[in-house]
């Protein structure tokens, strides 16, 4: 998975971002000041940077000007439209408004990684190998046919592994927000995935909440 630089001076939020990103398989490096971030970006390469605008020493935008080749999502306060405009002007890829939802954060990170071609191209667990770009699923070396809907659902679950996704969230992510289906549709597709790919032990039902892909 991706290597992500988290630049946020509040330890609690830095840890929160790190905990969730590592949960879905990314590797994270934390920086608490702008100077630390510039130094870290100079020493090692990153696939993505999460950047707080308000930092104690160097402003987030100044960091963005120095670290040009890393795709960046910046964290900003609600309603600070000028921040957003300035951030995009400096080449940021997306922004997240505080307070943010963890699921939204993960989705946006994934979207930027995919857009900048830094997302993983293959995922393997046990006898199962999934090639995302080729839309190919192999179980014990044998090709398994999945419908586009099943494939999308599998992708959302794996990209958010170890995090529980509600049926509503799965519907909106895998079927699109305009889909007027019932949450029962999700249950049916989950059963099919479990059966076809022998994922009974990995796709867990979370009581009253939804489903979680566990490794």
């Amino acid at each position: 998975m991706a290597k992500i630089l988290i630049v946020e001076d509040e330890r609690a939020i830095n840890d929160l971002l790190k905990m969730n990103l590592e949960m879905v398989g990314h590797r994270c490096v934390s920086a608490f000041t702008g100077r630390d971030a510039i130094r870290a970006a100079g020493e090692q390469g990153f696939d993505l940077m999460l950047l707080d605008v308000m930092l104690p020493d160097v402003e987030g935008f100044a960091v963005l000007e120095k670290v040009r080749d890393v795709p960046t999502i910046f964290l900003t306060a609600r309603g600070a439209t000028t921040d957003k405009v300035r951030g995009f002007g400096l080449g940021a890829d997306d922004y997240i408004v505080k307070p943010f939802e963890v699921a939204e954060l993960l989705a946006r990170v994934q979207a930027v990684l995919r857009r900048t071609h830094r997302a993983e191209t293959e995922y393997a667990i046990g006898d199962l190998v999934i090639r995302w770009d080729a839309h190919e699923v192999l179980l014990c070396g044998e090709r398994i046919d999945l419908t586009p809907q099943e494939f999308a659902l599998l992708r959302i679950l794996i990209e958010n592994r170890n995090v529980c996704l509600s049926r509503q969230k799965l519907l909106s992510e895998a079927w699109g927000i305009d889909f007027l289906g019932e949450s029962r549709t999700v249950d049916v597709h989950i059963q099919k995935l479990r059966r076809k790919l022998k994922l009974e032990n990995h796709i867990k039902t979370i009581y009253k909440n939804g489903y979680r892909f566990e490794e």
């Binding site: 609690a12 929160l16 905990m19 969730n20 609600r78 307070p99 963890v102 979370i206």
Partner: peptide, 28 residues
Amino acid sequence: MRTPLTTMKGYAETLRDAKLTEEQRYMA
């Protein structure tokens, strides 16, 4: 107020949705 709100919301969601180790749960 924004920082505590962001933190509380984030950790509460993480506790609800994520598969955490005992140590992570304690930290959250």
